[in-house]
Structure formats: structure tokens, C-alpha cells
Computed example of a mutant assay.
Amino acid sequence: MLIVMPSPPPHPLEHGVVLAEVRKVRRAGVVRLRELALPVVAEVARDLPRGDGELPGGPVEKVLRLAVSRMGGGTLQTAAEYSLGLAQGTRDWPAADRRRRAAQVYGVSVERFRKHHEFMVLGQVAEQIVQVAGRTPVTDAPAPAPYDRIPAAHRALRVRVERRTVPVTVHVHSVDLLRDMDVVVSPTNTYFALPAPYKSSISATLRRAGARRDPTGGLVEDRVHDELGSWAARHGAPGRAALPGTVAVTSAGALADQGIRRIYHVAVAVPRPETNDYDVQPADITRGVARVFALLAEEARRYDPPLRSVCLPLLGAGRGGLTPLESFGALWTAVEAELARGADWDIHFVVRRHARADLLERLLTSVGED
């Protein structure tokens, strides 16, 4: 008779070993994950259910993102995202820049962060990886799909403002996929200097999508960039910083073919001297969005049909360092004030991730509740 012995339980991970591998990632960054020897984290990754696609850093990046997502938000999670290069736009940042940005989350010097906070932050990442490994079922059954349906890319919500209900739409895709929108709001720095068109930020995406190209893809006219430069020249701002909250207006360039009529560039990012970083203050976002509505009211009647719809991204939630909640809170202060006085604008928000859309939906549908 053949006796089948049960498989021994997996050996529990040692926190110190996992922490050593997490520290390797901090030094190298996620862009070099495939070059690193991370046998323990790789073993955890092999036991995770397979998703529909692979992250650029492979299964190991999936483990890291899962571990960080379980840290409960706040400064701890934000510092972990910057430390490892998991925050949006930080994948290719040098280790020193990531450490500096993580130190700013706690409001301490880089040296103090390195000696004290960093060990705590990375230790918590390691702890979450250990917990993930302990809860991951080892099975030959096919992994369940992450969704039983495709999440909606456009969410039509009804939001209570004062004594009326207004429609608000949340779009979940890249900003250049918007259609039939009168005004798209774009964040920019106080110098109105657009980033290179190959970058992934909202302003770079709009610059790229607004450019005119020939049939082979060659650049014919960098329309949004050129018009923004002309605006700065007309208003005496070339080469000097404008006040945060200033709004510049351009056409949508080639995006007019998609029904986009205007781009309002809101200066919210204040460059930090001799660094690649920016400071964004929520009050500047609120002031800038209020100015957006003032300009919209000025321009609306000049067009036929009049301008009415406006789409807002989460200003400052990328390189600006604000959390999505902080960004939306600053945006909504101005939006709600405008709607509360009876304005009839058609309000839209655009985000790339469904997790952020879920957050906006929860916040918007709870507006007006006691």
C-alpha cells in the first residue's frame, strides 16, 4: 500500500532575511529588480495568484506593491513608496533622491531619516511580506480572476450639494483619451515650463497629444507648448515664476479632433532650487481651481455652443507629493463652493487607477451626508 505523507508546512520566513532583501531594493530601485538576487521574495512571488498581466519588475514587484498596500496609508506607506520607487513617477529616481523625498514625508533631515525612520519603514515592508507569505495558500487550483467583470471606465455619480443633486463623472483612463470635453485642467509648475513630451505626467501627455504630426509621426507643430510659451511672453512671465494658483489658457491643439476645446494650465508646482522636486500646497490648488471657474465663466459665452464641461485631474498627487485624498480635498473645496452658489457646470474628474476612482466615488457619494 502506498502511503502519501502530507507536505511539511512551509518554513516561516525570517524577518531579518526579508529585510536584507528589501534594503537591496531600496538601494537599486525597482528598475533594476531583475538584476538583483532576491531569492526569498522571489519564492513568495511564486506562490501568489497570477494576474492578467505582469508588472515591469515582474512578480517580485507585485509582492512589494502588495506589501506596501497593506501598510494602512499615511506617512508610513507614503515613505515606503518613495523609498522603494513605487510612488508614481519615481521608478527611475536615484536612491539619494528617493531617500530625500521619503525624509520630507516625515519632515526630518535626510541623515536623521537614514539613521532612524528608514529602518522602521523598510522593516514594516518586510513584516508585511512575511505576513503575505504566511497567508498565501499553496494550491494547484487555478487562481481566481481579480475581477468578475471589467471595471467601468466612466462612472456617472449623483452628488448632493446644498439642496440639489448634481451629476459628476469620474473617468478612469489616461487624460489623452478624453472626448468631447470643453476644458481640461492640466497641472504645471510656476514657470509654465512643460515637461518633455515623452514623459508620463498629465502635462506631458497633453503636450504630446496636442501636437500636430505628419503621417510618419514626425512633429509638425508643438501646439500646446508653443501657445503656453506665447501666453507667458504676453503676460511678462517668461523665465520667471508666476504666483502659485495662476492659470494660463491655451487651445487643445490636435486634441480638438477629439472634441477638446481648451486646456487650462494651473501653476501649482513650485520647483525646489537645485533639485528635481516640487512643493505643492493644497491652498494653491484650491486657489487655482477657483480661478479655473472664474476664467470658464469669462470665456463660456465667447463660444458656440458655450463652454460648460470641465475635467480635473488630481492636481499635485504625482511628483507634487500630495496623497490622492489631500489633492481631492483641495480640489473639492473650490468645486463645491462653485456648485453651491448655483453654477451649472458639468463636472468631471480623470484618474488612471481604479483604486483612486474608488476613493473618489466613496468621497463624492458621501458628500452632504450627516
Rank of each mutant, 00 (worst) to 15 (best):
A28V: 02
G29Y: 01
V31P: 01
V31L: 13
L33E: 00
R34I: 03
E35F: 06
E35R: 13
L36D: 04
A37P: 00
V40I: 10
V40R: 10
V41N: 00
V41R: 00
V41W: 01
E43I: 04
A45K: 03
A45R: 05
R46M: 13
D47L: 12
L48Y: 08
G51S: 14
G51R: 14
D52C: 12
G53K: 08
E54Y: 03
G57D: 10
G58R: 01
P59W: 11
V60P: 01
V60W: 03
E61Y: 10
K62Q: 14
K62E: 15
L64K: 02
R65M: 12
R65P: 01
R65D: 04
R65N: 02
L66M: 10
A67I: 03
S69R: 12
R70H: 11
R70I: 02
T75F: 06
T75A: 15
L76A: 03
Q77W: 08
T78I: 02
T78K: 12
E81G: 06
S83Q: 07
Q88E: 15
T90Y: 11
T90L: 05
T90A: 14
T90S: 15
R91Q: 11
D92P: 00
D92W: 08
D92G: 10
D92V: 12
W93C: 02
P94V: 10
A96S: 12
A96D: 12
R98V: 03
R101A: 07
